[in-house]
């Protein structure tokens, strides 16, 4: 019969019409973020960093710049400069994996749009004063400290 296929198709459409909506109204409603969400911010812990420069070398885009004092101070170098241009960062997490002293983490923040590129530049003090919302990426033990997202979809 001509049209039988279309009727069948319409039945599927009708069934979908009666389903619970799959989408959420974003700014008001939010989906839970997974623990390992790689948000667009880096978290740097000044007290753990030794200024070894491994993260800067691991980065595919040269986002991070590290400079230390020339002299040893209490058996460690003082990190004078730690800067990152988040406008260039692709949030790949390679720097986080490379850091041997667990000083670098990704954050779970993602609403970081700015009007100007300069506002994406993070200096040493910006890192120190930043709000720290650690992502469990590469550090799964961070997951355990937070309530689990179990319901998924």
């Amino acid at each position: 019969m001509i049209g039988a296929g279309i009727v069948k198709g319409m039945a599927v459409t009708l069934r979908h019409l009666l389903r619970r909506p799959f989408t959420v109204q974003y700014p008001e409603e939010r989906l839970p973020l997974p623990e390992r969400f790689r948000g667009n911010e880096l978290i740097w812990l000044v007290e753990k960093c030794t200024g070894c420069n491994t993260c800067a070398k691991a980065c595919p885009h040269g986002v991070i710049q590290v400079e230390t004092s020339a002299k040893l101070d209490e058996n460690r170098y003082f990190v004078e400069k730690f800067e990152a241009d988040m406008g260039l960062c692709i949030f790949c997490g390679l720097c986080v994996e490379a850091c041997p002293f667990e000083a670098l983490y990704l954050s779970r923040e993602f609403e970081k749009a700015t009007y100007r590129h300069e506002d994406m530049f993070r200096r040493r003090d910006d890192f120190i004063n930043a709000q720290k919302n650690f992502s469990g990426y590469f550090y799964p033990y961070l997951d355990k400290e937070r309530p689990k997202r179990l319901e998924g979809w």
Binding site: P34, R36, F37, R38, C92, L94, L106, S135, Y137, G152
Partner: peptide, 15 residues
Amino acid sequence: LDLFEMTCGQRMTFN
């Protein structure tokens, strides 16, 4: 994509 995001933290560029 939710499964991917759960595992590696991103939905498109997984790395």
